[in-house]
Amino acid sequence: MRFHQLFKAKLGLLGEEEEDGNLIAFLLKMMEDTGSDFTMTFRQLSEASVQQLHRGGFTRVTWAPHDLSSHQLFSDWLRLYLLRLARQEGDNDEDRRHRMYVLRNWMAESATRKAETNDFSEVCKTLQKLLDHTVRWCCYMMFLGNPFIAQDAAEETGYAARPPLWGRRLKVSCSS
Rank of each mutant, 00 (worst) to 15 (best):
residue 85 L to F: 06
residue 162 R to Y: 04
residue 59 T to A: 08
residue 19 E to R: 12
residue 89 E to T: 13
residue 160 A to T: 15
residue 144 L to R: 12
residue 59 T to R: 09
residue 29 K to D: 13
residue 165 L to A: 14
residue 129 K to N: 09
residue 155 E to K: 08
residue 113 R to C: 08
residue 34 T to E: 13
residue 172 V to E: 01
residue 37 D to G: 03
residue 63 W to V: 04
residue 40 M to G: 03
residue 45 L to D: 09
residue 47 E to D: 00
residue 30 M to R: 05
residue 139 C to Q: 07
residue 88 Q to I: 10
residue 9 A to Y: 03
residue 89 E to D: 08
residue 54 H to P: 00
residue 129 K to P: 03
residue 78 L to H: 00
residue 19 E to V: 08
residue 95 D to P: 00
residue 48 A to E: 02
residue 36 S to V: 11
residue 30 M to F: 05
residue 5 Q to L: 12
residue 105 N to H: 14
residue 172 V to W: 01
residue 49 S to R: 03
residue 7 F to A: 00
residue 93 D to P: 09
residue 85 L to V: 06
residue 84 R to V: 03
residue 2 R to C: 08
residue 58 F to K: 05
residue 58 F to S: 06
residue 75 S to K: 13
residue 174 C to P: 07
residue 103 L to C: 12
residue 109 E to A: 10
residue 24 I to D: 02
residue 25 A to V: 06
residue 165 L to K: 12
residue 83 L to A: 09
residue 80 L to I: 04
residue 77 W to H: 02
residue 1 M to W: 07
residue 80 L to H: 09
residue 159 Y to M: 13
residue 100 M to I: 15
residue 22 N to H: 13
residue 74 F to N: 04
residue 31 M to G: 08
residue 36 S to A: 15
residue 58 F to T: 07
residue 28 L to F: 07
residue 133 H to G: 11
residue 149 I to Q: 14
residue 127 L to I: 15
residue 100 M to Y: 00
residue 55 R to Q: 15
residue 69 S to Q: 10
residue 36 S to H: 04
residue 35 G to C: 03
residue 134 T to R: 12
residue 82 L to C: 14
residue 137 W to N: 11
residue 78 L to D: 01
residue 148 F to Q: 10
residue 71 H to M: 03
residue 73 L to A: 11
residue 23 L to S: 07
residue 166 W to R: 09
residue 56 G to P: 12
residue 7 F to W: 10
residue 92 N to F: 10
residue 43 R to I: 12
residue 130 L to C: 13
residue 66 H to Y: 06
residue 152 D to T: 13
residue 100 M to C: 14
residue 91 D to K: 01
residue 50 V to N: 13
residue 160 A to Y: 15
residue 90 G to M: 10
residue 61 V to A: 08
residue 145 G to L: 09
residue 57 G to I: 05
residue 6 L to E: 15
residue 37 D to R: 02
residue 175 S to V: 04
residue 172 V to T: 05
residue 73 L to M: 07
residue 53 L to T: 04
residue 102 V to H: 05
residue 117 T to A: 12
residue 34 T to C: 05
